[in-house]
């Protein structure tokens, strides 16, 4: 395949670029025209100014929230994969644990999050726990689906070649589940920041979630939007990093 030239790549993204600029423009001049007070919808330039002026404080909170998200996501990935393996290995687990995990999704996560604060306190623990509450399910379920989707023909073939159970797992099941795992991890990366934010709302002394909550209490809209902007970038950034790792590892596959 031919490499795209930078200019061509830019041209293919042109509509998106125009749209983004247009949206930014409306954000900048729209609210004052519509008579919106700045504490309801601040102008884009106000947000950028707030972002710059509070940069050191924001950077510290950014780091806190990022750490909570990444730690929670990593633990979810570990626990999710172990659960998926367990479900794959045990018929009993498949018929008991799996339905329970699926059914547990009807419980509103937001409603049970305060319990995490009760159990794990106001420190890092409760935030990580809430992030895990958000991210465990997509990782466990998608990895599990990956295991189930392993091509049975390939499994049969390896068995006729005398493959042992560990060999079947390592050379057939595990590689087959990788795309599913990454689907789950990407979903998890995108929502992990939301989990961390909620965790901070429920009780915390630092982090962008706490920052935006405090700013909104003080009716400083520009600071709220600055925090939200950073949270979005964090979510997008985590997603892109996972996506990039996936591309590196699974580059040669075709679905």
């Amino acid at each position: 395949m031919k490499e795209k030239k930078p200019l061509e790549a830019l041209r293919s993204q042109l509509p998106l670029l125009v749209f983004a600029l247009l949206a930014a423009g409306i954000w900048e001049i729209g609210p004052p025209l519509a008579g919106m007070p700045h504490y309801i919808i601040p102008r884009l330039s106000d947000v950028l100014v707030a972002l710059w002026e509070d940069r050191l404080v924001l950077l510290r909170h950014f780091g806190v929230t990022l750490w909570e998200s990444v730690l929670g996501l990593a633990l979810s990935a570990l626990l999710g994969v172990l659960t998926a393996v367990w479900i794959d290995l045990s018929r009993l687990a498949e018929r008991t644990v799996f339905p329970v995990i699926v059914a547990s999704q009807t419980i509103p996560i937001v409603a049970i999050s305060p319990i995490m604060v009760m159990w794990f306190g106001y420190e890092l623990g409760s935030k990580v726990a809430v992030v895990m509450l958000f991210t465990f399910f997509p990782i466990a379920v998608n990895t599990s689906a990956g295991f189930r989707g392993a091509d049975p023909d390939t499994g049969d073939l390896l068995r006729t070649m005398g493959a042992s159970k560990p060999q079947l797992f390592l050379k057939w099941k595990l590689p087959s589940a990788m795309p599913g795992f990454f689907t789950g991890l990407k979903l998890g990366a995108a929502i992990s920041v939301g989990g961390a934010t909620l965790g901070e709302w429920l009780g915390g002394q630092s982090g962008l979630g706490m920052y935006t909550k405090r700013a909104s209490n003080m009716l400083s809209g520009d600071a709220v939007f600055a925090g939200v902007l950073l949270l979005s970038f964090m979510g997008i950034g985590l997603f892109v990093i996972v996506w990039w790792i996936e591309c590196m590892l699974l580059a040669h596959r075709r679905a």
Binding site: D153, L157, W172, L250
Partner: peptide, 9 residues
Amino acid sequence: PQRDGLMPW
């Protein structure tokens, strides 16, 4: 096998 069952990875 009838289908080749080659491993895509």
